[in-house]
Structures are given as structure tokens and as C-alpha cells.
């Protein structure tokens, strides 16, 4: 009694979509490892392990078939996005707490795959930065700036045994966004801030290339039609326009738009986080509004907020608005006039 019996021949599935998203993340991950050391491998490993174990456990407890849901790959994408948002070399339990918040609270408390109104990885990140600001603002210093070059073994040691043998100052620093904010508030001229060693030619040293690699992965997803252009473009335009306007108003206080595009989580957010279909708007016009709002809020939070980066909060706020945006941006249906009749 099935309609459309042929429906099974299209060769796409949720797991293939998720695997392709993960493949698109790989250039960014490699760039990250190159510029910021092997810590990223540890955090990816930990987040993935925690997330898969937790997802399996929850599925068992919810009495749903474990295999198809675990193999859909959605929890892997969540784990990777969380790992890429959190600072590397943080204590292991930070990742564990982040995973619990993302997978259990943000995803399964709302009914699991497809039901969550908020981006799980961003819920994990936001809750952690509110709860553990000290750990969340210490990032490994970029290549060439760290006094001590870490091996993978050192990274594991740091994450699990704590910061015993090596002094944290030797390998971590605040992010450029953080530094810019503190220094600019202290009145340091923009040129002097830009002259600091952690800044690169446009954004943060090394981070520029990581951002570019994420953007490259995002373009791959566009080419494979995993995402549409609406969300990344609207997010980046919203961010650049707002940052540009602020920069024009007060160049001493606010960095230029290119700096904003290439630092922090802007590219990751534009291509991989804001595009999460479950939590994003789903109509073409809605996507533009939703992502434009997220980009706008990212710039505002970076400029005036208390936290170094604004992507997570901006995306979460935009998530809240999605049902409203969707309801008012329904496309015209074939055969209806402009009034929808």
C-alpha cells in the first residue's frame, strides 16, 4: 500500500549527508592542527568518544533502535563542531560536560534527531563559556609563538593530567578577539594592537588560514548541494556589514570587517553551524533573514558583549526566531497569486 514505490532509488541518506559534512570539515581541522598544535586531535577524539557512548546509552534508555540512529552520523557532526568550538588542551572533563550538554540536554531532552530547536554544539559551548570562563578563554598559541612545541603525547598529558610539567603561559594565550576587546577598551590605539605578535596579516595569526580552510570546506558542501548559498552568504554579509559600519563609526575601537570574517568562529559558524538544517530557517527568504540576523548579532556581541566571540550566542538567538521567521516567509505556492490565494 505504498505510494511512490520508486522512492528508494535516490542514493542519499541522513548518514551520507552527515559523512559529507564531516569530510568537508577535514581541511579546517588539518589547518587547525598545523597552526595550533596537536591538541585538536585530542579534543576531537574525546568529544567523539563521549558523544557516541552517550548517544548509544540514551538511545538504549529511550527504547529506540540503536543502530540506525547511531549510524545516522548526526552525533558525530555535533561532537566535531563542539570540539572545534572549544579551546584545545582544556581538561578532559570540560569536553565531557560539553558533550552532555549538547547531546543529552540540547538534543535528546527535545526528542532527539530532528526535534531540537537549538544547535546542540552551540548549546554546549554557550553553557561552558558561561560556567567555566577561565578554561574557555585560554587557547593554544599559534605556530611560532609558543615557547614550547607540543607533541601529541604532551597534549594527552595536559588534557588528562593537568598542567603539571609545562607552564600554561608557555603554550596558551587569549584569543585575538579577546585581546582586541580588552586592549581597545583600555585605550590602546588600533595600530598598536594590530602590531602584537598574535595578529597576522588580517586576523589572528594562523587563524586566518584555518578560517580559509573552513570556508573551502564550506564551498565543497555548496558544490555538493549539501547546503544552499543563502545562509553562509547572509551570515557573512550580516557580520561584515555590521562590523564595517562600526569600524567606520569608530576605527580606533572596532576592527575592520575582514578581521572579523577571518577570526574566531566566523567561517565555521557561517558554513557549518548556522547551516544546521534542524535548527535553521528553511525557506529561502527565511534563511537570509535568519543568517543575516545571526551575523549581525555576532558582530554586536563581539563589539559590545562580555564574551570574546559571539557566534554561539548569535546562532542560538537566531534559532529562537526560526519558527517566527519561517511562518512569515513561506514561499509562494505554484498556482497561487502574490497574496497566497
Amino acid at each position: 500500500m505504498n505510494g511512490s514505490p520508486y522512492a528508494l532509488l535516490a542514493k542519499n541518506s541522513v548518514s551520507s549527508v552527515m559523512l559529507k559534512v564531516m569530510a568537508a570539515l577535514i581541511p579546517g581541522i588539518i589547518a587547525h592542527a598545523w597552526f595550533f598544535g596537536p591538541g585538536i586531535w585530542v579534543s576531537l577524539f574525546l568529544c567523539t568518544g563521549f558523544a557516541v557512548a552517550l548517544e548509544g546509552l540514551i538511545l538504549l534508555m529511550r527504547n529506540v533502535p540503536v543502530k540506525p540512529f547511531l549510524s545516522d552520523g548526526s552525533v558525530l557532526v555535533t561532537a566535531w563542531l563542539l570540539a572545534l568550538s572549544l579551546p584545545t588542551l582544556a581538561p578532559w572533563w570540560l569536553y565531557a560536560v560539553g558533550v552532555v550538554l549538547a547531546v543529552l540536554v540540547a538534543k535528546h531532552f527535545y526528542g532527539g534527531l530532528g526535534q531540537n530547536p537549538f544547535n546542540p554544539a552551540m548549546v554546549g559551548y554557550a553553557a561552558l563559556i558561561v560556567s567555566f570562563p577561565v578554561y574557555m578563554t585560554q587557547w593554544p598559541a599559534p605556530l611560532g609563538l609558543a615557547d614550547h612545541s607540543l607533541t601529541l603525547l604532551d597534549a594527552f598529558d595536559l588534557v588528562f593530567a593537568g598542567q603539571g610539567s609545562i607552564s600554561p603561559d608557555a603554550y596558551t594565550s587569549a584569543t585575538v578577539l579577546d585581546t582586541w576587546k580588552t586592549q581597545a577598551r583600555l585605550g590602546l590605539p588600533a595600530e598598536d594592537i594590530r602590531a602584537m605578535a598574535m595578529f597576522g596579516w588580517a586576523g589572528a595569526r594562523g587563524q586566518e588560514f584555518v578560517a580559509a580552510a573552513f570556508a573551502f570546506g564550506g564551498l565543497l558542501m555548496l558544490a555538493h548541494r549539501l547546503i544552499t548559498w543563502h545562509i553562509p552568504v547572509a551570515f557573512l554579509v550580516g557580520l561584515a556589514l555590521t562590523a564595517g559600519l562600526l569600524h567606520l563609526l569608530d576605527p580606533g575601537r572596532h576592527a575592520d570587517p575582514l578581521f572579523h570574517l577571518l577570526s574566531g568562529g566566523a567561517m565555521l559558524g557561517a558554513f557549518f553551524i548556522a547551516t544546521d538544517p534542524v535548527t535553521a530557517s528553511s525557506t529561502p527568504l527565511g534563511k537570509l533573514i535568519y543568517a543575516g540576523l545571526a551575523g549581525f548579532l555576532t558582530a554586536l556581541i563581539r563589539a559590545f558583549g562580555g564574551y570574546p566571540d559571539g557566534v554561539a550566542f548569535a546562532v542560538l538567538i537566531a534559532n529562537i526566531c526560526v519558527p517566527f521567521i519561517d511562518a512569515y516567509t513561506q514561499p509562494r505556492v505554484f498556482g497561487h497569486d502574490k497574496a497566497g490565494k
Partner: peptide, 11 residues
Amino acid sequence: KWRYPVHMMKR
């Protein structure tokens, strides 16, 4: 009438 499609979500 077309019946409610059977969903095999539950174990």
C-alpha cells in the same frame, strides 16, 4: 481511505 503510514521508529 489511505491508512496512516506505519513508522518503524520504535524498537
